[in-house]
């Protein structure tokens, strides 16, 4: 279980998170939809431990991790622009956490099979297309056998046609891991393709919604307000 309770965060006078609470169960793939600048990345950074909340708690697997540094939280993280290590090969990227005894060769091979990365293992990230860079970033995070997964718009660099193929693939791989997954996007269509549950971020709060269609309405309404 991944749980956030009553998290607040401001940057100077700007209140970004205003008492956010959220629960994700193992096997659940919750998509968090929010407009640009609504605080999605800030929330993920608080979950990974890269940013400290002003107030509130973060729990993973029933353990309070609010005070722990990122390396002790066992969270998988795929950031917005994949952040692959350009000096390492694809294989070395995926096996990065093995250095700390996390994951195994076995998980590695499993991930490589699932994500069809075999032909690219010897390449450098700079030689891959956007879609394959996302796959490597996902494989790298999952190979460390995390207790929860966070993905921040992981396929921004993939074109629409390929998204239709990659989203179901990611969904099946993530669901198979049976850990809580929080997936962030500002695109309700993408949310529909990958999510098993949905929530929306608005005015520093997160609310559960029943379908991404609801997000469409809210996103449109807010976009109109912002446009004025």
């Amino acid at each position: 279980m991944l749980e956030i309770r009553d998290v607040y965060k401001s940057f100077g006078k700007q209140k970004v998170l205003n008492g956010v609470s959220l629960k994700v169960s193992p096997g659940e793939l919750q998509v968090l939809i929010g407009l640009n600048g609504s605080g999605k990345t800030t929330l993920l950074k608080i979950l990974t431990g890269l940013l400290e909340p002003d107030k509130g708690k973060v729990q993973i697997g029933g353990r309070d991790v609010t005070q722990l540094p990122p390396e002790e939280r066992y969270i998988g993280y795929v950031p917005q622009h994949t952040a692959l290590f350009s000096h390492l090969t694809v294989k070395e990227n995926i096996l990065y956490s093995l250095h700390h005894g996390r994951g195994s060769e076995e998980t590695f091979h499993h991930m490589v099979d699932l994500l069809a990365l075999e032909p690219y293992l010897g390449r450098k990230p700079g030689e891959l297309s956007g879609g394959y860079r996302s796959r490597v970033a996902l494989a790298r995070a999952l190979t460390s056998t995390p207790k929860a997964m966070l993905l921040d718009e992981p396929i921004t660099e993939v074109d629409r046609a390929k998204k239709e193929h990659i989203l179901p693939l990611f969904r099946s791989v993530l669901v198979e891991m049976n850990i809580p997954v929080l997936y962030i996007t500002h695109d309700p269509w993408e949310a529909e393709q990958i999510g098993t549950s949905f929530s929306i971020m608005k005015d520093g709060n997160v609310t559960r919604i029943n379908s991404p269609a609801e997000a469409f309405a809210i996103v449109r309404e807010q976009a109109l307000c912002d446009g004025e």
Binding site: K45, P69, P70, H87, Y96, R140
Partner: peptide, 26 residues
Amino acid sequence: DMDLIAVARTLGDSPANAYRRVVIPV
């Protein structure tokens, strides 16, 4: 890209580890 360090940290690196394994090579 500070996300490089962020990812390295979530994969188990302390700041010193991330500096040696990611920042210095980059």
